[in-house]
Computed example of a mutant assay.
Amino acid sequence: MSRRDTLQLLLLSAVWGASFILIEISGHSFPPAWVALLRLTFGALFLWAVLRLGRRSLPPARFIPALVAVALFNNAIPFIFFALGEHTVPSSIAAVLNATTPIWALLITMAVQSTRPNRFTTWGVLLGFTGVMVVVFSHGQDSQRHVSNAEFFRGVFFIALASLGYAIATVIAKIKLKGLDPIGLATTQLSLAWLMVLPVAAFGAHPLHIQRSSFFAVMLLGVAGSGLAYLLYFDLLSRIAATHVVAVTYLLPIWGLFWGFVAHEPILWTAYLGVVVVIGGLVLLNTTSFDQLKAALALPARKKPEVEVEYDAS
């Protein structure tokens, strides 16, 4: 990758990694459905502007059923559930839980395609979930928090469902939405999800006292986390291999811990250990051979032994 691509990849991971702390700050004033609705509002407005200025096209009408499914599982449900879960779960732990998305996506894809996992995939799944469990259960015993274990694990459950929703949407998009204009796809997704979340927010709890920090957080969450991030992501995909873009997945838990540290969240040492284990699992998930694993770890590849060939001179 070029220096520009590397910097853009880091920027994308930082923006997406900051989404978790922005969700938490937004939740100080807005109920979960309103966090989702406002995030979708600002994100969709930003992408509609980009769509019109760039003269990009919306997907054909025949893709509407698949688009509705992706909007539901990739935006409407996760945006509400993350906001709901982060009422009792620190944003840094939410970022680690979100790292299970590629694991769920791989398992769903293998189930749909009836394929068997190789040994790297099996160990990657086990290692990834082990790292998440280390983080979750150690923080479940954290006495510095002001929520009960039941409330904490209920929040974990909602965030886990949100991550599963991302995975389901990923599988649907890969099968049903190939070849579409990415900006048109993202704009349609957010707009359809906005229509789904609107009645939930309208007939549910309403915000009472809106803090300025919460409003700016949800606006930044929409414009950057759900608008600008899409542009960075699809721009990277247009220039570099998808296997390189997936490096964002490895960086999100790290950024989640970083932004949580900046926000003075209590982070146990086990969280850092768990993130290392999770990232190790994600590396294994994208590995098919020992040489590829060495390349991922930046280790020198083992040279194949030279074979002596005898020639018949007769």
Score class of each variant (00 low, 15 high):
A162Q: 09
A162V: 15
A162D: 10
A162L: 14
A162P: 14
S163W: 11
L164P: 09
L164Y: 15
L164C: 14
G165V: 13
Y166S: 09
Y166P: 11
A167T: 11
I168G: 08
I168Q: 12
A169C: 13
A169N: 13
T170F: 09
V171I: 13
V171E: 10
V171L: 09
V171M: 10
I172A: 07
A173W: 03
A173H: 04
K174C: 03
K174L: 09
K174V: 05
K174N: 09
I175L: 12
K176W: 01
K176S: 01
K176N: 00
K176G: 01
K176V: 00
L177F: 11
L177C: 13
L177D: 13
L177T: 08
L177M: 09
K178S: 15
K178M: 08
K178A: 15
K178F: 06
K178T: 10
K178I: 01
K178H: 12
G179A: 12
G179L: 11
G179H: 11
G179C: 11
L180I: 03
L180R: 02
L180E: 08
L180F: 03
D181L: 04
P182N: 00
P182G: 03
I183M: 13
G184P: 02
G184V: 04
L185W: 01
L185D: 01
L185Y: 05
L185E: 02
A186C: 02
A186G: 02
T187V: 08
T187K: 08
T187I: 05
T188K: 02
T188P: 05
T188I: 01
L190N: 15
S191F: 07
S191C: 05
S191T: 15
S191W: 01
S191Q: 05
S191G: 04
L192A: 00
L192P: 07
L192G: 02
